[in-house]
């Protein structure tokens, strides 16, 4: 159920480190330019002003939604672990990768 189709990352990747070592109480704000468009099998976030779109897999979309609800990284991890208990071992990495991707693309920003 919980899958991330982004390229496999080694743990020494700087972006991975960014999220992995992030303060777990960190919260995020959504970039309001990006609007979500849902298709049968994926979600596209698109900002017409930037002319940029990013496809999200299921995990990244859940994370984006939770960012929008003002959850911290730790709260997100807890919600994901509760929803997918059988995948607890990978949830931390999946969450870090999703946050990295969203931060990297300017779709979310760390809340002040």
């Amino acid at each position: 159920m919980l899958r991330h189709s982004a390229k496999a990352r080694s743990t020494d990747h700087p972006l991975f480190q960014t999220a992995k070592t992030m303060n777990t109480t960190q919260r995020f704000t959504l970039n309001p330019d990006y609007k979500a468009e849902q298709f049968d099998d994926e979600v596209l976030l698109y900002a017409v002003s930037a002319g940029q779109g990013v496809y999200l897999n299921e995990t990244a979309f859940l994370v984006w939604e939770m960012c929008g609800r003002g959850l911290s990284a730790a709260e997100m991890a807890a919600q994901l672990e509760a929803a997918y208990p059988e995948q607890q071992e990978v949830i931390g990495d999946e969450l870090a990768a999703a946050l990295d991707s969203l931060l990297e693309n300017g779709i979310i920003h760390p809340a002040p």
């Binding site: 609007k35 468009e37 298709f39 596209l44 698109y46 017409v48 002319g51 779109g53 496809y55």
Partner: peptide, 17 residues
């Protein structure tokens, strides 16, 4: 498929504006 979806979304959002 993804390129066409991207273009369709671009036109939809542009049109809405």
């Amino acid at each position: 498929r993804r390129t066409l979806r991207l273009l369709s979304v671009h036109h939809r959002q542009t049109n809405l504006i």
